[in-house]
């Protein structure tokens, strides 16, 4: 790790002020990704502003007037606490499952909800500072494009970057239509829809998301949904636990008997951001919840996929995982094969 100044603060606005003063400063939350990357010499901040004492950890109902319209999760709350909060387990079990699918118990005890959204890619060329990588050093080229790209994107990649975004939590947040609430340097809040939070690589893969320097994630807000009892998070990976997703699917079905009022589907491990499966959702709206319809939706979703040399399998795997997730969601959250 390069030397850095370690700065403490106990309120959000002073943290932000400290950060804007130094373009090479970074916020330190759980540190599970940042310290890893600093040890790899990929991240090189010269100042860390510790957010550990900020009081932005609460999970609480989102209220408009007298109505509960959703839930708010503190940006600096720990992943474990979010996953296990009684309100989230009851009304947003999809989020609980997605968080628990990620990393290990130890890491979930450290990692924050806001930090989770800011995870950087696991692309091994990004991690290896001896390799060209547009994300790490813009303009040097993408080594993964012609390299080992089994783990990489099948949707939305560009000629400059084929990396995937590794979070599980964010995939569920995408299906849940969440928003990211940030505090701007001016002190005012900005609400960014989760779909607009992460970016596709385009010509600027160095930017993972639309958060500006000096903005702090204070909360994640999730609107109420009608599929708590019919949701599923399915993750396919190279081992049964503690591995990044090859493909993951978050699915929620709002049902009326056997009929789908609406479907919410998002995919992980396939793109530079959580991939909202809108084609599939559109097809399923108003249809009966049958395996045939699930398959039709999955086929439609994967039609636009552009696989690379080593990840063609993700198309078939993606289809099957969508179908499987929809089946599980239909059977109900408590169902276990």
């Amino acid at each position: 790790m390069r030397p850095f100044k370690f700065t403490n603060t106990s309120n959000a606005s002073s943290a932000i002020n400290l950060l804007i003063k130094n373009p090479n400063a970074k916020f330190l939350a759980g540190g599970t990704n940042l310290l890893d990357l600093m040890k790899e010499d990929v991240e090189r901040p010269d100042e860390l502003i510790d957010l550990g004492r900020l009081d932005l950890t609460a999970v609480r109902p989102l209220v408009t007037g007298n109505n509960v319209v959703g839930i708010s999760i503190g940006g600096l709350g720990k992943n474990t606490d979010a996953a296990n909060h009684p309100l989230i387990r009851k009304d947003y079990p999809l989020l609980t499952k997605a968080i628990l699918a990620g990393a290990s118990a130890q890491i979930r005890n450290m990692a924050t909800n806001g930090g989770n959204l800011l995870q950087r890619t696991r692309c091994s060329y990004f991690y290896d500072i001896a390799m060209p990588c547009n994300k790490r050093l813009p303009g040097t080229g993408c080594s993964a494009m012609q390299g080992i790209n089994r783990m990489h994107a099948i949707f939305g990649w560009s000629d400059s970057c084929i990396a995937v975004y590794p979070s599980d939590m964010a995939v569920a947040l995408s299906a849940l239509n969440a928003s990211v609430k940030v505090m701007q340097p001016s002190g005012t809040a900005r609400i960014i829809a989760i779909h607009d939070f992460h970016r596709l690589p385009g010509n600027h893969p160095e930017k993972d998301n639309n958060l500006d320097h000096g903005e702090l994630i204070t909360a994640i807000e999730i609107p109420k949904n009608k599929f708590a009892a019919n949701s599923a998070y399915i993750k396919v990976r190279d081992r049964n636990s503690y591995a990044f997703a090859l493909v993951s699917v978050a699915a929620g079905l709002e049902l009326a008997g056997g009929k789908i009022i609406s479907a919410s589907i998002a995919m992980g491990g396939v793109a530079h951001k959580p991939w909202r499966a809108t084609h599939a959702e559109n097809i399923l709206r108003g249809k009966m919840a049958t395996v045939e319809n699930f398959q039709m939706a999955a086929d439609a979703e994967m039609e636009d996929a552009r696989p690379l040399a080593h990840n063609k399998f993700k198309i078939g795997m993606g289809k099957k995982t969508i179908v499987y997730a929809l089946e599980q969601a239909f059977k109900g959250t408590g169902y276990k094969a």
């Binding site: 390299g147 080992i148 049964n240 636990s241």
Partner: peptide, 29 residues
């Protein structure tokens, strides 16, 4: 079923030189 060091032969280098991506079984396996 799990472990393998994967080489990028253009660089002559193993590309999963860590134990997050060099998969040793975990308890759940």
């Amino acid at each position: 079923l799990r472990e393998e060091s994967i080489t990028d032969h253009r660089f002559g280098k193993y590309m999963n030189m860590n134990i997050a991506e060099y998969h040793i079984p975990v308890h759940a396996d």
